[in-house]
């Protein structure tokens, strides 16, 4: 298969169960028989409730966890090998960096490349150019010498995105990146990811429990609640699918997001008519995913 046609990620009947700890701990699968492929240059949103196995799936794709059963390939290789080669960039759910560290924005971003150097090597011109390019893409070029702890929350997230892309990855994995961010912030974030996707030919995976975050970034959606319920464009998300994923009638939970998630005229679920009527004044196309 030519490299350009090779799937970015192939997940083949993967299950994972965390080892039981302590005498009274029972172990049940965090994810079960998940099976899908992600084509290159896709922006996939993985939607699911808290505790639905999203972070576990990310750790499996990153190769930090090994599947209890099934196989995962990232660009045709084992995830651990792909990660060692710098093919995967990762933005964690919470920024756990120690902001008291005496390190500049530029140095923090350059860690993505310097950590792969031999002890006696220095950053090459290519390394420095890649770091500078990443900084430029996230628009932090005026803050490179500032201590990392002096950045605002939004700037810090952009610095972490720059670090994730500074190693020239082909796959960018974003774990709940817009928790606590307002709608305008989510849309700005979506635009930034879209720019990176186009500039760097990136495949993007974003996991979130928040449908707005998914809609702002993704052009395809997978719904995960231990097992995979759905894998298609955001427009295909029906209330029935969402109710199954979240084990709840989500119309009341997500409100107008029901409208955002699929074309209003395609919805024939009587349970959501009230919601439709209520939100019909909204611009339905505005917040749709990339395919709308």
């Amino acid at each position: 298969m030519p490299p350009s046609e090779q799937p970015a990620v192939e997940i083949d009947h993967v299950s994972y169960t965390y080892p039981a700890t302590g005498f009274d701990a029972a172990s049940s699968p965090a994810i079960q028989d998940v099976n899908f492929t992600i084509a290159q240059n896709t922006k996939l949103g993985i939607l699911g409730p808290n505790g639905g196995g999203k972070s576990t799936l990310i750790k499996l794709i990153l190769g930090i966890l090994k599947p209890t059963s099934g196989t995962i390939k990232v660009f045709g290789q084992s995830p651990a090998h792909a990660r060692q080669q710098g093919l995967i960039g990762y933005l964690p759910q919470r920024i756990g960096a120690d902001l008291d560290w005496p390190i500049s924005v530029q140095q923090a971003i350059a860690l993505a490349r310097s950590c792969r150097l031999k002890p006696w090597q220095r950053l090459s011109a290519t390394d420095n150019a890649a770091v500078d390019h990443a900084i430029k893409l996230v628009d932090l070029q005026d803050l490179t010498d500032r201590p990392i702890g002096a950045l605002s929350g939004g700037q810090l997230q952009r610095a972490m995105i720059a670090r994730a892309i500074a190693g020239n990855p082909k796959l960018l994995v974003l774990d709940e990146p817009t928790v606590g961010v307002d709608i305008a912030g989510q849309q700005r974030f979506g635009k930034l990811i879209d720019t990176l996707h186009k500039e760097l030919d990136l495949t993007v995976i974003l996991v979130s429990h928040d449908m707005r975050a998914i809609a702002a970034v993704a052009d395809r959606v997978a719904c995960l609640s231990r097992s995979l319920h759905f894998h298609d464009t955001p427009q295909g998300l029906t209330p029935a699918v969402l109710a199954q994923v979240f084990a709840h009638d989500v119309a009341g939970v997500f409100g107008d997001i029901h409208i955002d998630a699929h074309l209003a005229e395609s919805c024939d679920d009587p349970a959501h008519q009230h919601q439709h009527q209520h939100d019909c004044g909204c611009d339905h196309s505005e917040n749709n995913g990339g395919d709308s």
């Binding site: 990660r83 990762y90 860690l111 190693g167």
Partner: peptide, 18 residues
């Protein structure tokens, strides 16, 4: 030194960076 700096600065992500 570089491994220690990355680890001490941001331990939760170092596994993801190999």
């Amino acid at each position: 030194r570089r491994r220690f700096i990355f680890w001490a600065f941001d331990e939760p992500v170092v596994d993801a960076y190999g």
